[in-house]
């Protein structure tokens, strides 16, 4: 399986380290139901049979986190973009900033 790293070009998957589902966003730790939200974020997965957005880290390359869209039934890779670009496209990173708990 080959991953089209946006920075390095197409590389074999074994150069990468896989993390998993890229859709959950880190919840607001200051939310009153933070523990429920973090439980969901850390543990629950849609685990789709089909298109899957996922994090791959180009450990033996540019060390960039890459968001890859890959089909879990066919392993076909539909596209990839750098994490920073993916977050920009998502339009906000606000939900991921720890609240000021002081």
């Amino acid at each position: 399986m080959r991953i089209p790293c946006p920075y390095c070009g197409e590389r074999d998957a074994h150069e990468f380290s896989y993390l998993g589902d890229a859709t959950p966003a880190r919840p607001d730790p200051a939310a009153p139901d933070a523990q429920d939200r973090f439980f969901d974020y850390v543990y629950l997965r849609d685990n789709p049979a089909g298109a899957h957005q996922e994090w791959w880290y180009h450990a033996y390359g540019c060390r960039q986190w890459v968001q890859v869209e890959r089909n879990t039934l066919t392993h076909a890779v539909a596209g990839a973009r750098l994490a920073r670009d993916a977050r920009d496209a998502a339009g906000d990173a606000a939900g991921n900033v720890p609240g000021d708990a002081s």
Partner: peptide, 12 residues
């Protein structure tokens, strides 16, 4: 090491 329903793996 990656999510899969394909019942097959790869060479590495």
């Amino acid at each position: 090491g990656y999510n899969s329903y394909a019942q097959r793996g790869n060479l590495p």
